[in-house]
Structure formats: C-alpha cells, structure tokens
Simulated assay, not measured.
Amino acid sequence: MFEVPVVDIAPYVGDGSPDERAEVARQIDAACREVGFIQVLGHGVPDAVVGGLTDAMDAFFGLGLEDKRAYVRPPVENRGYTPPKSESLSLSLGVESATRMNDFFEAYNVGRAASEFPGMDLVPEHFAENTWPEVAGFEVQVSAYFAEAGRVARTMTRIFGDALGLSAAFFPALTAPSIDVLRMNHYALPEGTDVTLDGDLVGMSEHTDFGIVTILWADAVAGLQVLGSDGVWHDVSPAPGALLINLGDLTARLTNERWSSTLHRVKPPVVDGTIRRRRSAAYFHDGNPEAVVVPLDSCVDEGHPRLYDAVTVDEHIRAKLAGSRAGVRNTTGREGARVLESHR
C-alpha cells in the first residue's frame, strides 16, 4: 500500500541527542529510497507564520485578473505573476502534453535577490530582484514564511548529509549562495469561466522538481498526486501541521538515483462538478548556480553504474525552466520515460 512516510525532525530543530538525530537520518534515508516524498512534523514553523502566508495569498489571488497581470515578469527571471494556462510543467521533462501550456494554476514567485549578496557576481536571472504587489501586508507576511521555509530546507540538507555519510560542510558548499524560490500556487478558475470537465483540464502537469529539496505547504483540498513505484498515481494529503518534503532532480543525480525525485502532479480539484479552490506554496532550494553536481562515489559501484554526467546547477535549472515557462522541450532528463509509462 502506497504511503508517504511521516518523520518528526524535532531532534534536528532543537537540541536532540546524537542517537535521536541518527534515528531521524535513518528514517529520512528509508523514505528517500522508497518514496521520495516525506511528511515532516516538528519543523518549528509557527502557525501564525503559515496563517500570514495564506492571508497574503488569498489577498493577492483575490484581485481581478487584469490587476494581477500587471505583475507578470519575463519567464527567464522566475519572479512575479504567472497567469493560468501559461505553463506546461510536463515540458520540463521533455514530454509533449496534449494540453500544451494549459496548466490552469496561477502562481506568484519571489526569491533570493542579488541585492542580498553585495559584492558578489551572481547570475542575474537566478537572483532577480522581487516585485512586491501593492497588497497590504503581502511582503511582510510572505517574507516571514520565506525565511522559515529556508530554515527548514537547510535543516533537511543537514539531515541528508548525515543520512548519506557526508561531511557537515558538503551541502553548505553546494548551496551557498543558493537559488531559492517560493512559488505560491492557486488552483481556481475565475468566476464566469466556461469550461468543460472532460478530462483534459490539468491543474499542474506531471513533473519532478528541479533542484535539491522542496518544502511544500498545501491545504487539505484534494488534488496532489504522486507516482508510486507501482506506476500508479496516488492521492496525497498532508497530515495536520505537516510540511511535505520532496526531492529534486539534482539530489537524484547526486545520489545516482539511490534517492529519487518523485513525479507528481495536481489534478483539478473537482467537487460536485465544479472546480474547488486549492492553495499550496513550494519553497525550492536549488543550490549555487556555479556548483557542479555529479554522482557521489559512495553511490556508484558495479551494481549501480554512473547514470549522470557532471552538470552545473545553472545549466540544469535553465533547461528545466525553459521547458516549463518558455515552452522549450527539455531533452536532458531521464524522468520523461516514467511519465509516458504512467499514461499506458
């Protein structure tokens, strides 16, 4: 039976003993090997901060479509507003969707900006300045959650390092400074939209996440599905108070697929024949653009030959974003075959 493991990471958030942390690392290793999705408790994100995030999302996405369109930015910058039906995440895997550029979610992206790192020569597209909408409290509330989600992401990489037997310096070297983006997603069609629910409507098409690790907050409305090792799509709903953790492609590369970047999608949340509103917020922790990712020696042997060549974080993320946001089919990934197999 498919199940997303629940792990309490409190020993890493607080003053846990070495034995307690070793047990958390063991559980995380097992979850990453078997599923690639994890629910974590004990993460320490205050309820008030999550509440502020959802209030900010509701306030912005409640604006009229034309008001929101004023915050559209060029796709390469990965910032600002994304209108409905302007992306197709399946293209980031190299899979042509029958509903190309038809994912009906809308989103708003913020991220780490170059101005936070004075004196450093950073890739402008990955560290673009943010556009903050003129919505009361939005910047303060979103920034508070961004900081907390970043802390959880760094905690997870610390656990990953212990689970993989790496030095404490490994992930900090791979991720400083990191491309970090918070994508706030809203699944709801504008009032008055005429749509036929014939199976072709896609909330968010099949994809893997691009970087190292994703910290996902999601409300309890159904829609998120994960592709299991059995080739079947399974519904996933977060436990009360839990954050969902999923691995990105760079971690799959790093571990030579000892750990997998799990395919997931969002189906239209349809209740009684109508599309129900659904919200989520994904914090992507992707790594230093100049860092080179290559399979760890400890994950390569005669039974597990090297599956990937070296790639920089910059090269990998650019190819993925060109697929999802600019409609350029990605030809570099291994995951597309899994998508096609799941359609049979």
Rank of each mutant, 00 (worst) to 15 (best):
M1S: 14
P5H: 11
V7L: 05
A25E: 11
R26F: 11
Q27V: 08
R33I: 10
V45Y: 01
D47H: 03
A56E: 00
F61L: 02
F61R: 03
F61V: 01
L63Y: 01
E66C: 09
K68E: 00
K68T: 01
Y71F: 12
R73L: 05
P74A: 09
P75C: 11
E77N: 12
E87H: 02
L89Q: 06
S90H: 01
S92F: 01
S92C: 09
L93V: 08
L93D: 09
L93Q: 14
A98M: 08
A98D: 10
D103K: 02
F105A: 03
G111P: 00
G111N: 06
E116V: 10
M120K: 14
L122H: 06
V123W: 02
E129L: 12
T131H: 08
E134G: 10
A136G: 06
V142C: 00
A147V: 09
V152R: 03
R154S: 13
T155A: 04
T157F: 12
T157W: 07
I159T: 03
F160M: 11
G161M: 07
D162Q: 11
D162I: 00
L166R: 13
A169G: 10
F171V: 11
P172W: 08
L174R: 14
R183H: 04
G192Q: 13
T193D: 10
V195A: 12
L197I: 14
L197K: 05
G199D: 03
L201Q: 09
M204H: 06
E206N: 12
T208M: 09
I212Q: 09
T214C: 06
W217A: 04
A218W: 00
A220K: 12
A220V: 07
G228T: 06
D235V: 05
S237A: 14
G241R: 00
I245C: 04
N246G: 13
N246T: 13
D249R: 01
H264S: 12
K267Y: 01
R277Y: 03
S280T: 11
S280N: 07
S280P: 04
A282T: 07
A282G: 14
F284S: 05
N288V: 13
P289C: 14
A291R: 12
D297A: 14
D301A: 00
E302M: 02
L307H: 05
Y308H: 07
Y308N: 05
A310G: 11
A310C: 00
V313E: 06
E315Y: 03
K320A: 08
A326K: 13
V328D: 12
V328H: 15
R329Q: 09
N330H: 10
T331I: 09
T332K: 09
R338E: 15
